[in-house]
Write a protein that binds this DNA or RNA. Structure first.
Lengths: 190, 190
DNA sequence: AGCTAAACTTACTATTTAGTAAGTTTAGAC
DNA sequence: GTCTAAACTTACTAAATAGTAAGTTTAGCT
C-alpha cells in the first residue's frame, strides 16, 4: 500500500463536519472541500463516492467522539453534575465557533436524506439522549440533582435547550445561550 | 391592471414556506415551485426576482401571521396559560405536518444568507421572544404562572424546547415532542 | 528491479441551478 | 375600440452541481 497522504480522508471528514456545522449540508459542495484541501474534486469522490457517504462518515465519526467522551467521564470521582457540565461544554465550544450541532444542522434537510443516513442520525440522537438520561438518573439517585417528572422528559428538555440555544445564539447573540445554560443548571441543581 | 391570476404570488409564498419547513432553504429550487404551481420558472422570478427576495417575503409573512395571532389573543377573558398554549399549539400543528419552524429551518443556512435576510430573521426572533415573555410576565403577575429566574430566561428555555422539540420529533417521533410540551407546562404551572 | 495497489489528477458529462431578455396574452381604464 | 400595464411564456445563458472513466504517480512488498 502506498498512501501519498494518509490524512486526506481525515481532513475531508473534519472539513465536512465543519462545513455542515457552519453552513448546513445542502449549502456546501465537493468543490468547496477540494478547494480548501488543495486537491481535485475527484479525490474527494475517491474517499467518499457520494455526498451521502461523506455524511454517513461524519455522523459515524461524531458518534465515536461522543462514545469517547462518555468513556472518559465514566471514571470514579466524577460527579453527575460534572458529567452534565462536560456535555454542556461541548455545546459551548460549538457556540463559540459560531457553529451548531450536527443533529440540529441536518434536521432541516432531514426529509431530503436517504434512509441509510436517517437511520444513523436516529442512532446518534438515541445514543446522546440515553447518555444524558443516565447522568440525570445517577444525579437524582445520589441526591445531586432534583427534578420533577421523569428523567427522559428532563433529558429532552435539556437537550432541546442546548441544541436550539446554539441555533438561537447565532441570531440573537451568545448571551442568550449563556442564560439558557444557567437556567438548565438552576432547574436540576439540588 | 389585468391580473391573470392574482393568487400566484400568494401561492408561491405559501409553497415556498412549506418547502422551507419541509426540506430547508437550500434544498428547494425555483424549478420545484414552478413545477408544483404549473407555471414557468421565469414566472416565479417575476414575482420574486431572486431567491433571497422570496425568503424575505416568507419571513415578513410569517411575522405578520404572528402579529395577527398576538392581536387575536389580546382580548379580555383569555388567560396567560391559554395564550401560552395557543403559541405552543402553533408548534404542534407544525409537528403534525412533519414540518419544523421557519427559524429553526433557516438557522442551519444562516451563515450563507445575505445581511438583509439576517436582519429580518433577527426581527422575527426578537418579536416572538418578546411576545412570549409578555405572556409569562402577565401570568406571573396574576399568579397563574410560577417560575424561578427571570422571564427572559424562562422564555428562552420554553422557545428552545419547542423549536428543537419539533426538530427532534422528526427523528425520534412525535411522542418526544408531546413529552416536552407536558414538561413545559409542568414547569410554569402554578 | 518489478509488481501491485492506494491515492490521486485530468478531463469529461449530464443535470440542475439561479437568473435574464424579449416577446405574448389578458383584463380593465378611458 | 385602443391603450396600458400586469402577469405571464419562450428561449436562452453561465455557473455550479454531483459524479465518472481513464490515466498517472508513489510507496512498499517481494
Amino acid at each position: 500500500m502506498a498512501p501519498r497522504n494518509a490524512d486526506t480522508k481525515e481532513d475531508i471528514l473534519r472539513l465536512g463536519t465543519e462545513l455542515i456545522q457552519l453552513y448546513g449540508y445542502n449549502a456546501f459542495s465537493y468543490a468547496d472541500i477540494a478547494k480548501n484541501l488543495h486537491i481535485r474534486n475527484a479525490a474527494v469522490h475517491y474517499h467518499y463516492p457520494g455526498k451521502e457517504d461523506l455524511l454517513a462518515g461524519i455522523i459515524d465519526n461524531y458518534m465515536e467522539k461522543y462514545r469517547q467522551l462518555e468513556a472518559s467521564l465514566n471514571q470514579p470521582g466524577i460527579t453527575a453534575q460534572q458529567k452534565l457540565e462536560a456535555y454542556m461544554a461541548r455545546y459551548t465550544e460549538i457556540v463559540e465557533q459560531n457553529k451548531i450541532c450536527i443533529i440540529g444542522s441536518v434536521c432541516s434537510d432531514y426529509n431530503t436524506l436517504p434512509a441509510s443516513v436517517k437511520e444513523r442520525i436516529h442512532d446518534l440522537v438515541t445514543m446522546v439522549l440515553d447518555m444524558v438520561e443516565k447522568v440525570l438518573l445517577e444525579g437524582k439517585r445520589l441526591k445531586q440533582f432534583h427534578f420533577s417528572g421523569n428523567a427522559r422528559t428532563q433529558t429532552l428538555l435539556i437537550m432541546t435547550n442546548l441544541a436550539a440555544g446554539a441555533q438561537l445564539s447565532r441570531i440573537t447573540g451568545k448571551g442568550d445561550y449563556l442564560a439558557i445554560c444557567k437556567g438548565i443548571l438552576q432547574q436540576v441543581k439540588a
